[in-house]
Computed example of a mutant assay.
Amino acid sequence: MALAFVSILLAALTYYLVEKPLRFGGSSSKAKKNVVWALAFVMGITAYMGYAAFIRDGIPIQRMLFRSRNPVLNKILTYKFETGAAWQMGNCFLTEHQQANEFQVCGTNLDPKKPTIFLWGDSHAAHLYPGFKKVW
């Protein structure tokens, strides 16, 4: 509920402080262009920072800030899930470079006493496979 309120508040502030002055304000068109260019520049810098953090697996200082003396917590904070083997990449979960005829039968230890589960879909379905395999 609080997030919804904050979202609506930020939307209203953006409308009254940015959009309304730029669209309906009495200032000159040159001033409006300067503000638009400044906002575009800030947006570009923000996009670059996000991309740089993505290709570096996060911000380096974040590892220093969140380092813990607890080894279990450190393991959780630095955990990386490898999708290849768990999702049966290339066999059951085809990549974009594979054809449909490369699909293989993915049943593992089919137990006739248990009902059969059929997973069909993209990565959202593939991420369910390891859990079903363990429990089923």
Rank of each mutant, 00 (worst) to 15 (best):
E96C: 03
V35F: 10
Y129R: 04
A100K: 06
A85L: 01
E96N: 13
K133V: 11
W136Y: 15
P115R: 13
L77G: 13
N109H: 14
F132R: 07
T14G: 15
H127A: 05
A12H: 13
F54H: 10
G25I: 05
L22G: 09
T78H: 11
I61H: 14
E19I: 15
V36P: 05
M89S: 01
P21R: 10
F66D: 04
H127I: 11
L77W: 10
T116W: 10
H97S: 13
F54G: 01
F118K: 07
D122G: 05
M43A: 14
V35R: 12
T95Q: 10
V72I: 11
I76F: 12
R23E: 08
T83K: 05
Y16W: 15
Y51P: 02
L22C: 07
E102R: 02
A126T: 06
V35D: 06
F54I: 02
H124I: 12
F132H: 10
Q88P: 00
L9D: 10
C106R: 01
M64C: 03
L9Q: 11
C106L: 00
A4G: 14
V18H: 12
Y48Q: 04
Y79W: 12
K80M: 02
I45P: 06
A47D: 07
T14E: 14
K80G: 01
G58K: 03
Y48L: 06
T95R: 13
Y48A: 04
A4D: 15
K75D: 08
L73H: 08
L9G: 08
W136A: 09
N101M: 01
F132A: 04
H124M: 05
Q104I: 03
S123C: 07
A86S: 05
L10N: 08
F118G: 02
K134Q: 13
G84A: 01
K134S: 12
L22V: 13
W120L: 08
I59E: 10
K32S: 03
P115S: 05
T14V: 15
V42F: 15
I59A: 02
K32L: 00
L39P: 05
V6T: 15
A12C: 09
K75T: 13
W87P: 00
L13W: 14
A12K: 11
G44I: 14
A38F: 14
P112K: 15
Q99A: 07
A40M: 11
R56C: 02
W87L: 00
H127C: 02
I55L: 03
F24M: 01
P130E: 07
F132I: 10
A125W: 03
Q104N: 04
V135M: 06
L110C: 08
M43L: 11
D57P: 00
T116P: 02
S123D: 09
E102A: 02
P130R: 12
G50N: 12
R63Q: 08
G58Y: 06
K30T: 05
L10P: 03
K32C: 01
G44K: 06
G84L: 00
I59G: 01
K75F: 09
P112W: 12
T78V: 04
